[in-house]
Design a protein around this nucleic acid. Structure first.
Lengths: 225, 225
DNA sequence: ACCTGAACACCGTTCAAGT
DNA sequence: ACCTGAACACCGTTCAAGT
């Protein structure tokens, strides 16, 4: 999993070659190449295998064949690693959501919201470990890691923009924007996390169908029309 | 907070008196009275103060003036303490939801669902620490703690029953019950946790109003009617 | 620059022993 | 029954030192 150490070293050597020095090999065993990258990947692997709380600086370092103290060259502390994983995750999420909406170019607002919700849930369920880190208790409780807030805000803005477009087109109820966005976000997150936590059981090959129908209930309401 | 040690000891002494022995005082300092109860309360205090991950068997024992090893008389391990806190929490939640619905006796289904959602969110926000334990990563990931599943199932059944009643009355769309219940549950949980995590900012005195409106959007749909 | 050995104060958990 | 001292294998984090 995490033992891409050799590959890293090779890549690092190549980069060096291109830059300045001719072909001097890395001197000691203690140069890793891109420890930061490797730590992030390794953190995700560990969390995938053993859950979000099992990530340990020492365990990751062990897997990478590196002294645990080396991690502190790249991250201020354990929480900073977690925050970096979350940040990457939110960036990936924003990409996924944007792509999904781009594919529904001409569709009306209700359809676009349903697609948005489905894309969100599918992302979460494709990478449950990462999603749990993104939304877990470490998720910037304290307001440290302002960089983390940037992709989160982008994701939320995307939701709001979509709703506003629907309001403008006369398709979506003209209530307070923040409120509607919160309703939509809550539903997307709620569905994703309930399925991940197995509080709601959905067969993996049915997730797409399930979330589509669920989002439809949200957009069209539970009340009989 | 946790230092109800003296009170506990007194209570224990009284119980003893009533049962068999006349008025023999507790002999050593090492009899706590009801350590199990005290540990659960203490766990909640710690989590309230420092977040769910800060709960530590040793810290709790320290606060209670007891050797940490004493905890293992009452709980198999750390996770078992957490599970017990969660179990109590879900029982309290079920009570709150039932009371809220009982107060809306004659109301129609949409109203009852809105009230249900509001009561849920209000519970979560009144005791955020407890709610986070209930829904956190430790929440019976592994299927240990089957007792925990009982009040959870009761809460979910309550939601399903309410929806079914609405379907029977012709007020709620007649879609698959599990699906509708999941939509409702996801919204309730999503709203609660987003507010607790401050991803959605709502002034405490506005929570009631906010969740009412949010649940209304869910029940009546976001689509313009 | 990047890495590490030794150390500190913390964990959860177990064993064998005390009253 | 209930509690504890000593111990084990783990943490995160820091300091001073190595190349």
């Amino acid at each position: 999993m995490c033992d891409n150490r050799r590959a890293m070293k090779v890549r690092a050597a190549k980069v060096k070659q291109q830059k300045t020095e001719p072909q001097k090999k890395p001197r000691g065993d203690y140069h890793h190449g891109n420890l930061r990258r490797a730590l992030l990947d390794c953190a995700l692997s560990i969390i995938d295998e053993k859950g979000p709380e099992a990530f340990t600086v020492r365990e990751a370092a062990r897997r990478l064949g590196v002294d645990h103290r080396a991690a502190y060259r790249h991250f201020q502390d354990r929480d900073a690693v977690i925050a970096a994983v979350a940040e990457e995750g939110y960036r990936a999420l924003v990409d996924v959501l944007e792509e999904a909406l781009a594919r529904e170019d001409g569709a009306d607002a209700p359809t676009r919201l349903i697609v948005l919700g489905r894309a969100y849930a599918m992302f979460a369920l494709r990478e449950p470990a990462r999603y749990r880190v993104m939304t877990g208790p470490r998720s910037n409780e304290s307001g440290r890691f302002p960089e983390l807030e940037i992709p989160i805000a982008r994701a939320f803005d995307l939701v709001k923009r979509e709703i506003q477009a629907g309001v403008d087109a006369g398709d979506i109820v003209d209530a307070r924007l923040d409120e509607c966005a919160a309703v939509l976000w809550a539903e997307m997150h709620g569905l994703a996390i309930l399925i991940i936590m197995r509080r709601v059981r959905v067969r993996p090959d049915r997730v797409r169908e399930f979330t589509t129908r669920a989002m439809t209930h949200l957009v069209y309401g539970l009340k009989r029309r």
